[in-house]
Nucleic acid binder design. Structure first.
Lengths: 252, 252
DNA sequence: ATGAGGCGTTGATGTGAATCAACGTCCCCG
DNA sequence: CGGGGACGTTGATTCACATCAACGCCTCAT
């Protein structure tokens, strides 16, 4: 089977490797997040076949860059990734953070070129899913086709949530909402919903939320003073989930 | 063939109708926008088969509402549609405007429920594409499958552009960028890139761009004073395209 | 050990857009 | 014909967040 890797990935050392990580979709702890489909184990084997695992990405390395040829979408197996676009005037807009079990790179399909860049926030293991193979397999596996339509749709609805957050909510609400989002996604991976380490810097948070570093920092301080959140550098503890929800102004 | 219509569409009068509008994908003036695929005429006939045309939606009527069962995606044939979400606290966030040839409703796939509402800004003719049929057809028509993946990906990249606009740009830049976007989309339909009528209200524009009506109005006034735009209520004329580009702060 | 550079926090000041308010226009309906 | 309501504009004031500035704490290279 031909192996496809994007240019920048190749540049920075994302290489398929012979080393057996003893991981496959069938035994992957994350498959309920990554592949929530009623796949026959036979189907999973086929999917496994096209997925390429590789040696981990180091902090700061790029998985792909805006403008790179689009060949694959990627699933995060461990670590975390930030996706971002560069604006006309050279500034950076963070468009998303991706944690284990989550899939990124789908924005590249439309123009056959990645529409954003993706960079490791910490050491990260990645599964590469060549899109051409995925398309072929989808045509014969209706549940896989459906799953990918759903994944892309999910990305759209997530973006709409961010649009609303940026357009309608205060700095307090935005930061609180991000904390809740990370908490929820942690819980989905059977990790603590109340204690976690933020892999991204304050700059990245501000950039994602349309705020300056200073504002993010002040919101954290305020939340500490209110005793709804404990912040120790990147270590976060949610002390009062209801309080954080109230600050985020969400009903759910 | 079974006919699927969403609940709210049914409530408000979106009904398939026997009247022959003498429209099909093969002869539709918009097909280069809506279906930019190398489809055999045979394929187009098959696609035509599943698409349902109906009597036009009147201004203010809903095509679907947030929470409705997801059955179909929709293509605009004439008129225009606004898509919006309702926030927890009851406010409205406009997530997009859709013009002839454009496709909406794909955000409903992920949860099998529409994630936003869609309402006619003026009388609008719509093609309904039942998603179940589309999925089946996609499995046997690779170019159609590819096309839909691309459409969804396009929606993602468009949302990312809006995210960046909301997060990084001033009121002037946002309004100018919207004018350019409408201008470009008009040109794609072989209409004037410099003169057009805005189908949406100032409230909708503000809501989409994360601004108040007053601010939108002031930006328009400013653009008039600068003589780069002529505004007469909803009638817009771009007097100086480069000037508008400069205001939007875009290089392209 | 040392100092430079990245990252985060806090305080003082400035500003762009929100808010509040008033008014004009258009259109529909009694 | 008149009035109520939706929509748009413009001006005065306020305010949330950006900006500017200073400083503390790491870490890492010399």
């Amino acid at each position: 089977m031909t192996i496809h890797i994007s240019d920048s990935a190749q540049r920075e050392g994302f290489k398929p490797c012979a080393h057996d990580y003893q991981v496959n979709c069938g035994n992957c702890r994350l498959n309920s997040i990554c592949l929530p489909l009623a796949l026959e184990s036979d189907d999973i084997a086929q999917l496994d076949e096209i997925i390429q695992r590789s040696k981990p990405l180091q902090k700061g390395q790029h998985l792909y860059r805006e403008g790179d040829d689009f060949q694959s979408v990627f699933a995060v197996r461990s670590g975390s990734i930030k996706a971002y676009k560069t604006t006309d005037d050279g500034r950076e807009q963070v468009t998303g953070f991706y944690f284990p079990g989550e899939i990124l790179g789908m924005d590249g399909i439309s123009k056959n070129q990645h529409a954003s860049s993706a960079k490791a926030l910490e050491t990260a293991a990645i599964c590469e899913i060549p899109f051409a193979s995925l398309e072929k397999l989808s045509a014969v596996m209706p549940s896989l086709q459906r799953h990918f339509f759903q994944l892309m749709s999910r990305e759209i609805t997530d973006d709409q949530v961010l649009i609303t957050l940026l357009s309608k909510n205060s700095a307090d609400e935005r930061v609180a909402a991000l904390m809740l989002s990370i908490s929820t996604r942690n819980a989905r991976r059977k990790l603590s919903a109340t204690q976690f380490r933020l892999p991204m810097s304050r700059v990245d948070i501000g950039n994602y939320l349309g705020l300056t570093v200073e504002t993010v920092s002040r919101v954290f301080s305020r939340m500490q003073k209110m005793e709804i959140l404990k912040v120790d550098n990147k270590e976060i503890e949610i002390l009062d989930l209801e309080g954080v929800r109230a600050m985020a102004n969400v009903t759910s």
